[in-house]
Structures are given as C-alpha cells and as structure tokens.
Design a protein around this nucleic acid. Sequence first.
DNA 1: AGAATATATGAGAATATGTTCATATATTAA
DNA 2: TTAATATATGAACATATTCTCATATATTCT
Lengths: 107, 107
Amino acid sequence: MEESKYTQSVDKDLDEETLFIVSQTFKALSDPTRIRILYLLSQKEHSVNEIAEKLSLGQSAVSHQLRFLKNLRLVKYRRAGTTLYYSHDDKHVMNILKQTIDHARHH
Amino acid sequence: MEESKYTQSVDKDLDEETLFIVSQTFKALSDPTRIRILYLLSQKEHSVNEIAEKLSLGQSAVSHQLRFLKNLRLVKYRRAGTTLYYSHDDKHVMNILKQTIDHARHH
DNA sequence: AGAATATATGAGAATATGTTCATATATTAA
DNA sequence: TTAATATATGAACATATTCTCATATATTCT
C-alpha cells in the first residue's frame, strides 16, 4: 500500500531547520554550567558577577555561556549603570528544564 | 534574615546527582542523529539496519548511538533471530522531545 | 561445523566544546 | 580626562564527541 495522502505532518521526517533548532535548544540545556545558570535565573535576575560568585565560576566563563544563551534567545538582560542584569527569556524552555529537574529528582 | 526552615526544594541549589542526570538527558537530545533516531522510534520500533537505511547512516554509527541511548535507558530492544528491534523506553523524555519539535516547527 | 546475516565494538581521526588568561570595551564618578 | 568597576572578547589549550574502518560476536540455516 502506498503512503496515504492524509499522512499527518507528525509522521514526516524532520526537516533540516527544525532539526537544527531542536538540537541547539537541547545543547543549551546539556551543559552543567548552563543548567546551573538557567536554574539561578529561574528564581530571579542576576548580574554576571552575582552568577559567577553564587556558582563559583570565573567571570569570563559566565560571560561566554551567557553569550551562548543570549544567541539562542534563552536569556535577556537589562542594563543598570555598568551592571547587566540577566534574566530568562523563553518560558517554554524554562518549563522543560523545570520538568526535567523534577523528573530527575524523583529518582 | 536566615534561610527559612520551610524553604522549598525548588529553590535550593541543584545537587550533583540531579545535575548529572539532567545534563545527560539533554545531551542525549542534543545531537541531530540521536534526535532523528528517537523521532523514528516514536513512530514504531525499527531494527538497526532499518534505522540506518531510513536515515542514510552507517550501521556502525547507528549502533554506537543506540548504545548511548540504551545506557540512559531511553531505548530498549527485543530480539527476533539475529535482528534487534529497538523502541523507545522513556515516555517523559519522548514527550519532551515531541513538545520541543512542535515548538520549533511553529516558528 | 561452516556460511550467511545482523549487530556490536575498539581504535583512530576530525571536529566541537568549555575553560582560562590576557586584554578590550563600556559606563560612571571624580 | 583619568580611574574604577563590570562585562565582553579572542586565542590557546584540554577534553569530549561523533564518525569511519576494520573486525569481533551472536544467531540461524544448511
């Protein structure tokens, strides 16, 4: 039997663009440092130095990771003088992170 | 003010083990090849060769990735002669994958 | 046992990733 | 304008990842 002309999109192969977006999204969540940063930002906004101190990381490392997250529009920032306050900027992704943390904890 | 003894677990720092499980889970979903394999298995079980053919991948590459996914208990298999039929084995993770694919498609 | 088929495994190569170090840029205050 | 503070950036290094190639293992059939 041939493929039905009513085949749903959910059964089609993944197109390049979708695949790229999905893999990039999960890549953002696959590194312990980025997870810790996002988790911190899930509670409230933090400056770069606050993040570095709270998580015992170098300022440069934090800045690099924030750039990564910013490029994917997972975080945003507001400026206050020389200080940049970062906060999360993607509710869907933060929700998925929270779901998975809860799931991991219950085992 | 000191930390309340009623502080919710959701506000605590992430412990090592949770962090490890979460990062490993997302790492599994961060590679295009593994995403394509899991997506295929979300539809129905497939043998190693079927996966390789459908996705135009080498048999060895597929086998390596399946081992990775098997170690995380994201897939399982049943044997039929010399053929191994793989299927998904973690509804939570498959649900997250589906959510994220849908989210990516709608943009 | 030997041949055929399906899958797994290990080593090696190419590429990607994450951190550190040094330094650049931007904002504010004196 | 100069100094002080906060953050960003680029290069270099160490490690991790993913694929390919060759070969090993497992099952079935004759």
